[in-house]
Simulated assay, not measured.
Amino acid sequence: MTTDTSSPTILLIPGHWLGAWAWDEVLENLTSSGHRAVPLTLPGLDETDAGRVTRTLADQATAIERAATGSSGPVVVVAHSGANAPVSLVLDRHPELFSRVIWVDSGPAAPGVAFAPDFPEDVDGLELPPFEMLGEQASIEGLSADALERFRERAVSEPGTVLRQVVQLTNDARFDVPTTFACCSMPSALIQDLVKAGHPMFAEVAKLKSVNYIDLPTGHWPMWSRPADLAHIIASESSSD
């Protein structure tokens, strides 16, 4: 199918341990239906980069910014899981670059917070934990044995510099960017209840000006457990503005 040049460019940003490859099935679904989508491997997650363990959140945000400014027309950024920190940074720096942000089992980072502030300074990065341990932290529901094997084989340790860095946000215009939450391991009703209750984890969500919630019941990695459904959500939300 011919891609509509008036449609937005969709930037696909994977979470911890992942590169652009994590979006392969979602990308196939998007491009086959005529959407322009660009998956990124963030600095620090490219195993061929000899200096990757020194990369920072600022480096990652800059890479996303460059991809956005290099695209013609509107840009939608899709952030999965731990990509929330660099995506929050780039939204703070340049909210005008984006027509929408789609959080996939994720959400905006809060200012003054680091993912793992106490991660040891003498450790280069966080390796993918055993799946038994990972499953206690994030749901692996819906992942086949093949998906888990690929995850294990291709995962790259998350740089300690990225994990320790505090997110600094100062631009309230980030709250103006239309936002979609693809809710997977936590249902949208619960998220909205926590927002209304003033839960500190969802303080940033409460400040958003335009929000859509869409339920996609599955585990924390829907790009593998329900790729066609996730692609459909991304496509429909990208075209809704």
Results as ranks from 00 to 15, higher is better:
residue 81 S to F: 08
residue 81 S to E: 11
residue 82 G to D: 13
residue 83 A to V: 11
residue 83 A to F: 11
residue 83 A to S: 15
residue 84 N to P: 01
residue 85 A to M: 10
residue 85 A to P: 00
residue 86 P to H: 11
residue 86 P to E: 11
residue 87 V to Q: 00
residue 87 V to T: 11
residue 88 S to C: 03
residue 89 L to A: 05
residue 89 L to H: 02
residue 90 V to K: 00
residue 90 V to T: 05
residue 90 V to P: 07
residue 91 L to E: 00
residue 91 L to P: 04
residue 93 R to F: 02
residue 93 R to T: 03
residue 94 H to F: 04
residue 95 P to S: 04
residue 96 E to C: 02
residue 98 F to V: 05
residue 99 S to L: 10
residue 99 S to N: 09
residue 100 R to S: 10
residue 102 I to G: 10
residue 102 I to S: 10
residue 105 D to S: 12
residue 107 G to M: 08
residue 107 G to P: 08
residue 107 G to W: 06
residue 108 P to F: 05
residue 108 P to D: 01
residue 108 P to V: 00
residue 109 A to Y: 01
residue 109 A to F: 03
residue 110 A to S: 15
residue 111 P to Q: 06
residue 111 P to R: 03
residue 113 V to Y: 06
residue 114 A to I: 01
residue 114 A to K: 02
residue 115 F to V: 15
residue 115 F to Y: 12
residue 116 A to L: 13
residue 117 P to D: 07
residue 118 D to M: 06
residue 118 D to N: 14
residue 119 F to A: 05
residue 120 P to Y: 08
residue 121 E to V: 13
residue 121 E to Q: 13
residue 122 D to S: 14
residue 122 D to R: 12
residue 122 D to A: 12
residue 123 V to A: 07
residue 123 V to T: 13
residue 124 D to G: 12
residue 124 D to S: 14
residue 124 D to P: 09
residue 124 D to F: 06
residue 125 G to F: 02
residue 126 L to C: 00
residue 127 E to K: 12
residue 128 L to C: 11
residue 129 P to M: 08
residue 129 P to F: 09
residue 130 P to M: 01
residue 130 P to D: 15
residue 131 F to D: 10
residue 132 E to Y: 01
residue 133 M to V: 15
residue 133 M to S: 12
residue 134 L to Y: 13
residue 134 L to F: 14
residue 136 E to D: 13
residue 136 E to G: 13
residue 136 E to W: 08
residue 136 E to R: 14
residue 136 E to P: 02
residue 137 Q to G: 11
residue 137 Q to V: 14
residue 137 Q to S: 14
residue 138 A to H: 12
residue 138 A to Y: 12
residue 139 S to F: 05
residue 139 S to Y: 07
residue 139 S to H: 04
residue 139 S to R: 09
residue 141 E to Q: 13
residue 142 G to P: 00
residue 142 G to S: 01
residue 143 L to P: 04
residue 143 L to C: 08
residue 144 S to K: 00
residue 144 S to T: 15
residue 144 S to I: 06
residue 145 A to I: 04
residue 146 D to G: 01
residue 146 D to C: 05
residue 146 D to S: 11
residue 146 D to F: 04
residue 146 D to M: 06
residue 147 A to T: 10
residue 147 A to V: 09
residue 147 A to F: 07
residue 147 A to D: 15
residue 148 L to A: 10
residue 148 L to V: 12
residue 150 R to D: 13
residue 150 R to Y: 09
residue 150 R to P: 04
residue 151 F to T: 06
residue 152 R to P: 05
residue 152 R to Y: 06
residue 152 R to F: 08
residue 152 R to D: 15
residue 153 E to W: 00
residue 153 E to C: 09
residue 153 E to S: 13
residue 153 E to A: 15
residue 153 E to Q: 14
residue 154 R to N: 09
residue 154 R to P: 04
residue 155 A to E: 06
residue 156 V to C: 03
residue 156 V to S: 01
residue 157 S to C: 06
residue 157 S to I: 03
residue 158 E to W: 10
residue 159 P to W: 03
residue 159 P to K: 08
residue 160 G to N: 06
residue 160 G to C: 07
residue 160 G to Q: 07
residue 161 T to H: 09
residue 161 T to W: 00
